[in-house]
């Protein structure tokens, strides 16, 4: 009896080890394609001709470069606000629909995501030049960004709303709230986790975006992503590029901390966090 038990235990132990084996390919992937590049960036940012230095960082933190960062944040804020204003009503309507019609409609938001975003942006370039006069303006850049990031706002909000227990809505109505009051006092506050997920998923990538501004802004609008791209590719100045990347990374980490804080203060009941 005792022996069979110990064999079982050994087997269980063996199973545990064997299961973690499946993670090895990804660990390898992470080491080669995520960890190594990060280390390289760190290396380039803090070395100069083999010696350790902070000179690159000091240079990268110049006023001209910071102005580009501020501009990027401004664009990211506009994008986030527009995505929220457009996305929340869509997510709400989808969540109120029958499952089948909601699935059908959400295809319209998801299918464009199956195409590469560069391709979509090129399509906008053609459309804007053919039908409007806004190509190569800030409006065009903003339009491109909102278009590309909108699904990332809709989906987390939709998920939170769909998971929202219907009995909260019934309880509000039961206590005398008409549909508008029910939305303001119950549905909207309870969808906060989804909003925060959506804001995170739009704000962070749009701060670091590039290419959209080049394609639709015609080089007139320089975003931080474009700046890094330019340093690496055009000027081949890997040290400056890496230093700029470090500054951006620091900024992203700080913003993420704020979002997490905001998330912790809102309840995560009624809908799951996605991010």
């Amino acid at each position: 009896m005792k022996q069979t038990k110990s064999i079982k235990e050994k087997l269980a132990k063996g199973m545990r080890i064997r299961r973690s084996v499946f993670a090895y390919p990804y660990v390898l992937w992470m080491a080669v394609f995520i960890l190594a590049p990060m280390l390289l960036i760190l290396y380039y940012a803090f070395t100069n001709d083999g010696g350790i230095t902070v000179e690159n960082i000091v240079q990268a933190a110049s006023w001209d470069n910071l102005k580009v960062l501020i501009d990027s944040v401004r664009f990211a804020l506009y994008t986030t606000i527009l995505c929220l204003l457009l996305g929340y009503p869509v997510a709400y309507l989808l969540s109120q629909m029958k499952k089948t019609s909601a699935a059908l409609l959400s295809v319209f938001f998801i299918v464009p995501m199956w195409m590469n975003f560069l391709l979509r942006t090129y399509a906008w370039k053609v459309l804007l030049s053919a039908f409007t006069k806004i190509l190569y303006t800030e409006s065009a850049v903003l339009l491109g960004m909102v278009y590309n990031f909108l699904p990332f706002m809709i989906l987390p909000i939709y998920t939170t709303l769909i998971k929202l227990d219907k009995s909260y809505i019934e309880a509000a109505a039961d206590l005398g709230a008409n549909p508008a009051k029910t939305f303001l006092k119950v549905v909207f506050p309870l969808s906060m986790p989804g909003i925060i997920s959506g804001v995170t998923m739009v704000f962070i990538p749009s701060t670091t975006t590039f290419a959209i501004s080049q394609l639709l802004g015609g080089g007139k609008t320089m975003l931080y992503g474009d700046l890094i791209y330019m340093k690496f590719i055009t000027e081949q100045s890997w040290s400056t590029g890496s230093a700029l990347s470090i500054i951006l990374l620091a900024f992203v980490l700080i913003s993420m901390t704020f979002m997490k804080k905001a998330e912790r203060t809102t309840s995560d009941e009624g809908g799951g966090r996605l991010w």
């Binding site: 227990d165 009995s167 909260y168 309880a171 039961d174 309870l190 809102t266 009941e269």
Partner: peptide, 14 residues
């Protein structure tokens, strides 16, 4: 003019 006590209470978590 009726009020309900729900099966799973449905108290507002926020």
């Amino acid at each position: 003019r009726v009020n309900t006590v729900f099966q799973k209470y449905a108290l507002f978590p926020h």
